[in-house]
Design a protein around this nucleic acid. Sequence first.
DNA 1: TTGACTTGTCACCAACTGGTGACTATACAA
DNA 2: TTGTATAGTCACCAGTTGGTGACAAGTCAA
Lengths: 225, 225
Amino acid sequence: MTDTLARDRDTSEISLIQAVESVILEEGFSGIGVNALARRAGVDKVLIYRYFGGLAGLLTAYAEAGDFWWRVDDLLAEPLPDPDRPDALPDCLARVFERHVAFLRSHPVTLEVIAWEMSARNELTAALESVREDRSLAVIRGLALRFDVAESDFQAQVAPLFALLGAAANYLAARGRHLSRFNGLDLQSEAGWTQLCKSAEHMLGAVRLPDPPTAITSTSQDQTP
Amino acid sequence: MTDTLARDRDTSEISLIQAVESVILEEGFSGIGVNALARRAGVDKVLIYRYFGGLAGLLTAYAEAGDFWWRVDDLLAEPLPDPDRPDALPDCLARVFERHVAFLRSHPVTLEVIAWEMSARNELTAALESVREDRSLAVIRGLALRFDVAESDFQAQVAPLFALLGAAANYLAARGRHLSRFNGLDLQSEAGWTQLCKSAEHMLGAVRLPDPPTAITSTSQDQTP
DNA sequence: TTGACTTGTCACCAACTGGTGACTATACAA
DNA sequence: TTGTATAGTCACCAGTTGGTGACAAGTCAA
């Protein structure tokens, strides 16, 4: 509890937590292990057990310190289409999708954890899972509020769309780490992703609001470009 | 080159190749290794080096023996919507997507290799990559032929759609191996996948043929349920 | 000063990994 | 019979993994 002692322990803990990120970035999730982490942190591996109770505890500490997922406010930040405009909903969903993609492509650690989820379940993947579920549903809630429609109907309609497009983005972005081509598209070029976003927007054009009286369900203006 | 000698080598090789599939199914891709494979095959691991030149060679042999991906004919098998019907194209794409999903959900080894692709590149993932690229493009070619449209335009329009929906299916099916919930959906229940296919079909409703004179781009009949 | 506690270092463990060299046993051809 | 090639067994290697016990040095309170 003294100054110097406490400070030393603190720096050791911080070194270890930073080592998690560092190893993930430079070696990928498969490089995570007590030996590698201790080596990278310049610290003895026994401290991982003493201070964090083991690798799982260290990952938990890192998970609590890091932010692996977009914040709801960022995804729903203005400018977004005016809800009263026709086609505001599809446009809005397309913007949200673009922001989701942009986040993934600029967060290599998140991509690494997403890839990790494919093969194992651990404290990091669990943390990502939990926050992702929460915030995805929060985004849907936020959109229902914005468009002033019943949340349950909206959720039932939009959740599977988000699941599909979100899954596609996660998969393609994670794959793009090491491999470029998927179905003829280049996952490492700006053009490839622009193309993907355009196609997503096109498909989202089919989405209409569920029931409110303002929604027009008959003649929808599809201007296929 | 004698009968018995040759036969014995053959059975050893076959045991090893079968061990690859067996280990993947029971332990997942992370269980693949010379020791585990030899143990499972009931054979000494040195034979992996002698007969296949190493683990990579054994994986290659397995890759050549197995079929990890749907065949083009299966994906385009009849019955498919009559090309002259209105909305035949979106319906057709939706059927293809459903078949893609059905294949994945019934082929655990493929899901395992898909998951493997996320973390490493090896002979198995390379084989899957190659055959997947080829056959996906072949399916697009087949559809262009069916709808009698120019292949290049059609390809430019449909390839990114396939990339998005295919990626989503791959991701969700692979994740469904160990985790059930994604964005509120249940990836391990029939209902969850029915929902996903319905949403995909809904989104595909926005797709129209590129140029031929028969295509109607104005009044689209959206009946949102 | 004494004793208790914390921080960190180090040596060590068993288990496993990929990989190799030496060996026996069998079969075949000369 | 002799030589050669193959199939298979086994012991062993070095390196790495996760994990622990013993110990020295420093710090603090009584």
